[in-house]
Design a protein around this nucleic acid. Structure first.
Lengths: 347, 347
DNA sequence: AGCGCTTCATGAAACGTTACATCACTGTGA
DNA sequence: TCACAGTGATGTAACGTTTCATGAAGCGCT
């Protein structure tokens, strides 16, 4: 029959002199007589047989493939998250269909369509389209956005992260705090960073202000705001919490350019835990998200498909790490602060 | 029959009152009478029918899925490459199975096995295992490594890149050049950067030196070498070409820490074209690889599966971009040098 | 020896498609 | 009027698995 193509189970069965079903059972770990098992394994080895996942998937409706919907790969936070997710999935024998949407709702629709007809066993999505998630034919776990009580969501403990940032700044001697937030206007778990921060300020009676910019296009309002509070090299705040490491870093550079020393005069804490590829150091003092645990949790929730009890959002504990924009000094990753991209311990 | 499950072609056929084959032809773009086509489309719409790629794949041996084997996602160069590749594949209607090996040969084997039994239509690989590539049952296109004359390889024009670096440094007034190379000892297209650089030095009679460190673990030899050529704040070279942006950046910081001003006293050029996520600027003056073109080419080669004429390696043109470590000034990406991660133009 | 039990190999019937050989129907030309 | 293309719908046989009903073989017991 199909010479010159890949061998099939039928070929293995003929070679081993057993029935088709027996070969199947060997490959699925069902009990098979020792002698038969050996004959089958020898034949499979000899023919270099590979099981055909498409035939199997057709029959069983399980594909061992998960769709991953992410907004970007250029941003180190998303890249690291995808890295952890693919690793966790691979570890359980799942393949990952990665789809990058570039924050484009149209692209998200296209991805969902492709994913559905490709019959993945589930989807892990960091998406901006509640409608698609809710209507999905396959199970979904979302990251950072809770769309529906029955759809599990994994995120870091953003509220606690905000609290930690405030507590840390106070502990380091700050007296007048500022919260800066920038990003697209979509309801997400990340919105709890500000409230956490303000909670501590209020409870400790600390003076604070905040600026929320719901804009995806420009950070200009932030710099205008800071300029207004700048007077001959002195800023009106001595501790700043930014909702993102990127913003923290840029605010730091803005202040330094305007003669405000960081961390001497103003201390800054960001959020995410992003590491600079060249130095291997955190780009700023930061609340780091437990990426690996989040990935593990997302995969577990998706594959066990038991709806978690109560509210369907899992908030994993964050940690604070000094990174040079606070007075508690930098914390280098790796030996000498020199990052080697081929340095696997780094993962 | 299978109520409560996804509708099948049979269901659509019954609903539309046509034969199974007719439905199939509609979905595959074969000529079908207008009236029939409409009935089928209406029925499919009504039942919310999705074609089952696993059944189709079983029958046709085409899966519209490509395996992507990459060493890392934490390094911005790989992340950007994967981004371009998934985009190019998606654009052609292909899904991408991303697998990260973390430079681990054992993991590479595991990935190849998984990929083969999952019946992808082809593989794009940046791998360290010639054996697996050569023996692969499905077509492979490699990035940066030519393993076999019949297996296409895509890379940037590394030799020309090396030449450009040297030419640029000379043009900017350098007189004593240095080439620094670090990385694992594997034969790859990147090895041509040094020879290109040296080619220009030799032809112009320029004084130059080079240091090649075949080590994946540490860059210490580089800093020892530089220390030996440092004397009270003066370095023995005034132009350095590093085989990597990361190295270039770290060398810059090392020199600055030792009182050597960059780019005033020493100018540095790196290779890759990596952009800092926080600032949106190149991390150093650099030879940038045409990632998008490389991705397009890889996908084209893989999907057209015509073996290219002659030598099977495609070397795409690089460009030089000033990035602050040379005297021709920085070139910011985007308007104000401020990078917004939600800024799609950035792609 | 014969009975019931367990264990385990067998063969065939799906799974949801595509592709191919039929066949019904229309229209044309002699 | 009839044969003959040509068009296009139909039904069926694969594709490579899993699963299930069947039945054979072995074993312990009466």
């Amino acid at each position: 029959m199909n010479r010159n193509l890949q061998p099939t189970m039928k070929d293995v069965a003929r070679e081993a002199g057993v029935a088709l079903g027996t070969v199947s059972r060997v490959f699925n770990g069902y009990p098979v007589g020792e002698e038969y098992r050996e004959r089958v394994e020898a034949a499979a080895e000899k023919l270099n047989y590979r099981i055909n996942n498409y035939a199997r998937g057709l029959k069983t409706n399980k594909t061992f493939c998960i769709g991953l919907l992410m907004p970007s790969l250029r941003h180190p936070f998303f890249a690291a998250l995808i890295d952890e997710l693919t690793a966790a999935l691979m570890h359980r024998g799942y393949l990952t269909n990665v789809m990058i949407t570039n924050f484009d709702p149209g692209a998200e629709l296209k991805c969902f369509n492709l994913i559905e007809q490709n019959k993945v066993d589930g989807i892990i999505a960091l998406t901006y389209r509640p409608d698609l998630v809710v209507e999905s034919a396959v199970p979904v776990v979302t990251i950072d956005r809770q769309f529906h009580p029955a759809i599990p969501c994994v995120s870091s403990d953003n509220f606690r992260g905000g609290q930690m940032a405030a507590e840390k700044l106070l502990e380091l001697g700050c007296r007048k705090l500022l919260f800066l937030r920038i990003g697209p206007e979509i309801q997400s778990e990340a919105d709890r960073r500000g409230p956490g921060f303000e909670d501590v300020c209020r409870r400790t009676g600390t003076a604070y202000d905040s600026l929320l910019v719901n804009d995806e296009e420009t950070e200009a309002p932030v710099y205008q705001f800071l300029s207004r509070h700048l007077q001959d090299g002195h800023l009106d705040f001595d501790g700043i919490f930014c909702n993102t490491d990127g913003l923290a870093r840029r605010v730091m550079e803005f202040l330094e350019r305007n003669g405000v020393r960081v961390p001497d005069e103003v201390q800054i804490i960001g959020y995410d835990g992003i590491i600079d590829f060249a130095t291997g150091c955190y780009v700023c003092s930061t609340i780091v998200q437990p990426l690996r645990q989040m990935a593990e949790a997302a995969v577990n929730l998706l594959l066990s498909s038991e709806t978690p009890a109560g509210e369907a959002v899992l908030r994993l504990p964050v940690t604070y790490v000094p990174g040079g924009t606070t007075r508690d000094g930098p914390a280098a990753v790796g030996d000498s602060g020199v990052y080697n991209p081929f340095h696997t311990e780094f993962r």
